[in-house]
């Protein structure tokens, strides 16, 4: 009995807290399209895979063979402070530089004037521990070692995968001077461990608020500067850290890459 009371209270708390966040009761048919565009760049240059050499803050030359990351849990805030949280099941996106079509996260929202965009870079811990039947689409853990975004040996998603070649990287067992950054870690299931889930919040008021309307497709155009991975609060050198995966050091990279995103403009 006690247990049920407790569960009911928890459920009520959820309902109450949900209500506060989602004060929209708009039904599905009233929603209109909105996209968030993730435009990957390197400092002042566009990102081209493999062919172009860039230089990081440590003066190391590198090119990029792979750059992909999860965007999830998108929400938007209006001027009056009310927020619309996109239906979670429709709020997971894998942005892959190798496939231009994936640069848009397409969601549906009520008509409105939105001044602030929030999302998670990575996959939230709840979804990271859900039953496998809830892991469809980009969350399907069926990818291979090369382009997959899932660690089979330590159940969890890779949030950001960034690889390339640099003369500063030591020769690896495959004979290449390759650097590999696979950043993940949702906080641990039965024991606490690193948590690299990052919530990103971007103010849209300076460069154009989003005004999604019926019959149109509003697009929030973000720039994603991967140079920030090397230089923000922590300096990262390819020579010193050519491979960073599931390790304490990965939190430095995750703290850096929260600064990758900035708002360029909005097409309404």
């Amino acid at each position: 009995m006690k247990k049920y009371v407790f569960m009911a209270s928890v459920a009520m708390l959820f309902i109450v807290s949900c209500k506060k966040d989602v004060n929209d009761t708009s039904d599905e048919s009233e929603l209109v399209p909105l996209s968030v565009e993730f435009d990957n760049i390197v400092g002042g240059q566009n990102l081209f895979l493999n062919t172009v050499t860039y230089t990081n803050g440590a003066g190391e030359d590198f090119n990029v063979s792979m750059f992909q990351y999860f965007i999830s849990n998108i929400s938007l805030r209006r001027a009056d402070g009310t927020e619309y949280v996109v239906n979670q099941d429709s709020s997971y996106f894998l942005i892959r530089e190798s496939d231009a079509a994936t640069r848009f996260a397409r969601v549906k929202v009520p008509e409105g004037d939105y001044r602030q965009l929030s999302f998670i870079l990575g996959v939230d811990s709840l979804r990271s521990t859900m039953d496998i039947t809830k892991r469809t689409g980009v969350l399907d853990p069926s990818g291979g070692m090369e382009d997959g975004m899932y660690w089979g040996w330590n159940s969890g998603y890779i949030f950001v995968k960034f690889e390339g070649i640099s003369p500063s990287a030591p020769v690896d067992p495959s004979g290449q001077r390759k650097f590999r950054y696979h950043i993940g870690g949702f906080g641990g299931y039965s024991a606490p461990t690193i948590n690299n889930i990052k919530k990103i919040t971007i103010d849209l008021s300076a460069s154009g608020i989003a005004r999604p309307r019926k019959g149109r497709n509003a697009n929030i155009h973000l720039m994603v500067d991967l140079l920030k991975i090397f230089n923000n609060s922590n300096n990262l050198s390819i020579a010193t850290n050519p491979t960073v995966m599931f390790s304490d050091f990965s939190t430095n990279i995750a703290n850096n890459y929260t600064a990758m995103f900035y708002h360029d403009h909005t097409e309404n």
Binding site: W153, N154, S155
Partner: peptide, 19 residues
């Protein structure tokens, strides 16, 4: 697993398949 890295039996086969 010996280190408890997998927390759900439904996710376990992914480890040996991809290793």
């Amino acid at each position: 697993m010996w280190d408890g890295g997998v927390f759900d039996l439904d996710l376990q086969p992914i480890a040996p398949i991809t290793a």
